[in-house]
C-alpha cells in the first residue's frame, strides 16, 4: 500500500520552513531539506546578532560621546568619572543623543562635570 507523503500536517510544516527561507539563494529557498538547514543557521545568526546589537550600539555611543567631549576639552573617561561623582545617572544612549542634537545642554553638562572634578 502506498504511503501518504503529502498530508495536511506535513505540508503545513514544510510550508512554514519554506516561507521563512524566502529570498535565500537558489535551492536554499526551494528545497525543503536544504532550506531547513539554511533556516536553522539563519535563526542562530539572528539570535547571536540580537545580542551583539546591544554591544555595537554601546560602542557607537561611546565613540560619539568621546568626540563631543573632546571638543569641549575633556576625555570620555574623565567625563564618565565626573558624572558618576556628581551622581548624574544619564546613560550613554541619552548622552550620545544630547551630544549630537543638543550640544548646548551637553556643554553645560561638561562644564558642571569639570567644576566637580576641579573641586
Amino acid at each position: 500500500m502506498p504511503r501518504a507523503k503529502g498530508g495536511f500536517k506535513t505540508r503545513r510544516r514544510r510550508k512554514k520552513v519554506l516561507e521563512m527561507a524566502k529570498g535565500f539563494y537558489s535551492g536554499r529557498s526551494r528545497l525543503f531539506r536544504i532550506a531547513t538547514e539554511a533556516v536553522d543557521t539563519a535563526m542562530g545568526h539572528s539570535y547571536k546578532h540580537r545580542k551583539e546589537k546591544k554591544r555595537e550600539f554601546r560602542a557607537l555611543w561611546i565613540v560619539r560621546i568621546n568626540a563631543a567631549a573632546r571638543e569641549k576639552g575633556i576625555t570620555y573617561s574623565q567625563l564618565m568619572s565626573g558624572l558618576k561623582k556628581s551622581d548624574i545617572g544619564l546613560n550613554r544612549k541619552v548622552l550620545a543623543d544630547m551630544a549630537a542634537n543638543d550640544p548646548q545642554t551637553f556643554g553645560q553638562l561638561v562644564d558642571s562635570v569639570k567644576q566637580k572634578l576641579a573641586s
Binding site: 557607537l60 560619539r64 560621546i65 568626540a67 571638543e71 549630537a100 550640544p103
Partner: peptide, 9 residues
C-alpha cells in the same frame, strides 16, 4: 569623522 558627535560607521 570620529571627531564628530554624529559619527556613523
Amino acid at each position: 569623522g570620529k571627531h564628530k558627535a554624529i559619527f556613523t560607521p
